[in-house]
Design a binder for these strands. Structure first.
Lengths: 331, 331
DNA sequence: TAGAACAATGAAATCGAAAACACGAGCAAA
DNA sequence: TTTGCTCGTGTTTTCGATTTCATTGTTCTA
């Protein structure tokens, strides 16, 4: 910056002001400085800026790419969410630091903020880290979470209306006169999964009091483990006990269900209805196309960013639920 | 840092050295400083560090999330690649700055480096930005690109063996005695697409000299535009001219082909063979399961990072092709 | 025409860490 | 006993931009 100043025959502060388009410098000087800076490919050093300004203008985004080490991709839903968060941040001119932390402790995340790596954190996926997040909330850390929105939560979360989503599925199965429904998804440690299951069971049984509801637990949300879980389930039941409706907690799991049903020669939806969650692109493309629950990731992304910005301005953020919509297709 | 120094009864540089585990300080002092720092939740200010050190330890990754504005996700392949690049970077303790630049010019990217935002750039997807990249290569910018590897390229690229991939498909169709093959993919401005098409046509015609090869161009790689393009293609042909083999430049496009064929009551693979590209997870799940070309994104990610690191060390990087593998399934 | 108000600019201090350099103590060799 | 070296530590300077605060002219008002 000193060089530019010399070249323009002004002082460093003037260059700084010109570059930040301050009203304190003449249009003439401004133009001169800008021209010289451009010509020499000069760009202000962001690190000096960050040091001086004491804020970094960047947000750390924590995403779990792999549902477990060595597996293939997590559900594409996470990526849509990431893409939409990225867009929301870029609209506010914030930089996005993508984190896949090695160690999962609140100290790790505190130090991201303490070291001025980022001004705030967005967690894409609450998963099983609720206890850690509660710890983190005790500090003055600025963060928001995509996940279940609950009553007693000491931190700000934005998430789908999971209970409602479950209810929609339960009601739909009931309407179609299904009698042996099964939920397949994660354990109750996963708050979102628990909400979906609860809403589902309640709504289904309310309308079909004499029907039954089962539960298949999967350890992670990969296709492989879901397939293993469903297969095991079928193998220990005899044919008369087979479900006639399956609610999969994600579309990826639903694909594993499709496979298991096809292997057994069961037809979808005649023998068994299937409903998924998230409305992955290919839910619409597969055959039969998959009925599923859609959550608007675009809206989710911008709400997450919006609430975090509120926190950074010192204002109070709000936990928000975004609607769940049943997309009825063939399954 | 000054405070920690006072508390530990030493000077700032000693704290600095202790924290960086320098051999110049006593194990005793080191332990004391570490303990005090931990207790007070102190973390070194990364921005001051970056300013002083003149390098940022962060890499900018440019990813195109949307194939065109307003569309849904780009092909999941990009995300697998992103995930694997993220992992490769985190193994080297590099931070990942995710960029979705508004303006696509070499100046934009130069200024990311000039402003010390990042030390280097990884472009995930060459797309149509080859001319821009050539401009950028004229500067001393450190960057690598996922995309087509070509002879006269003035920059370092890591990419799939697209010609070879195309050849595998062409050979496979020829083996199956197909006579009217069609390639559906992007224009020749997209170097990767061009390579796939060329390899395909050459290999197919070589083994089936009397056969024909057609070409359907799609503007972007979304399901919707692919479906529109295929549909239009079928509508202007009469039945006898229908292809009996279709090579889709991505699995997403292949799904659109599936849909179009199903709509016309054509059976896969009896009437028409279909082969895709990338081996998306659900290529294996759909029915009939999709024969496709696999590229190892894990390897791609670590090679991209490795070559970039070479550049940053001042050594000469190398463009590298990773193998294409034909995954034979039902289609 | 003096004095105030104002507009544009410059000098110096600051952010937090790290490297260069300096220094004193302890020890070995001469 | 003196010189010279190593070891641990402290002093000082530096990185580059920005924000006081001070300083010029300039214009306007009484």
């Amino acid at each position: 910056m000193g060089d530019i100043a010399t070249l323009a025959n002004v002082s460093k502060p003037t260059v700084s002001r010109a570059l930040r388009d301050s009203p304190l410098v003449t249009a003439e000087t401004k133009a001169l400085v800008l021209e010289i800076a451009r010509k020499h490919g000069y760009a202000v050093n962001r690190n000096a800026q960050k040091l001086r300004d004491k804020h970094t203008n960047t947000i750390a985004v924590v995403a779990d790419f792999k549902s477990f080490p060595g597996s293939r991709l997590a559900d594409p839903f996470s990526f849509e969410l990431l893409a939409d968060v990225a867009q929301a941040l870029s609209m506010r001119n914030k930089d996005l630091l993508l984190c896949a932390p090695a160690e999962e402790s609140h100290e790790t995340y505190q130090s991201i903020l303490a070291s001025r790596h980022a001004d705030g954190i967005i967690f894409l996926g609450q998963g099983q880290r609720d206890p850690m997040l509660r710890q983190l909330a005790k500090t003055d850390a600025a963060f928001v979470v995509w996940g279940a929105v609950a009553q007693d939560q000491p931190y700000c979360a934005v998430g789908g209306a999971n209970v409602r989503g479950g209810e929609l599925v339960g009601a739909r199965f009931a309407e179609n006169k299904r009698r042996r429904a099964v939920f397949i998804g994660g354990s109750d440690k996963h708050l979102e999964m628990k909400q979906r299951r609860l809403g589902f069971e309640k709504a289904f049984i309310a309308k079909q009091p004499s029907a039954t509801v089962g539960h298949i637990a999967v350890s992670d949300f990969s296709y492989e483990s879901a397939l293993a879980a469903v297969t095991a389930y079928f193998e220990e039941k005899n044919k008369t006990e087979y479900p006639d409706a399956i609610f999969a907690a994600s579309d990826t799991i639903a694909m594993a269900v499709y496979k298991a049903l096809r292997d057994r020669g069961l037809s979808i939806p005649k023998d068994v209805s299937v409903i998924g969650y998230n409305d992955n692109p290919h839910a619409a493309w597969c055959s039969p196309s998959l009925t599923t629950i859609r959550q608007d990731t675009r809206q989710a992304g911008s709400l997450l960013v919006e609430q975090l910005m509120l926190m950074l301005e010192g204002r109070k953020p709000q936990s928000i639920m975004i609607p769940a919509e049943l997309i009825v297709r063939e399954s």
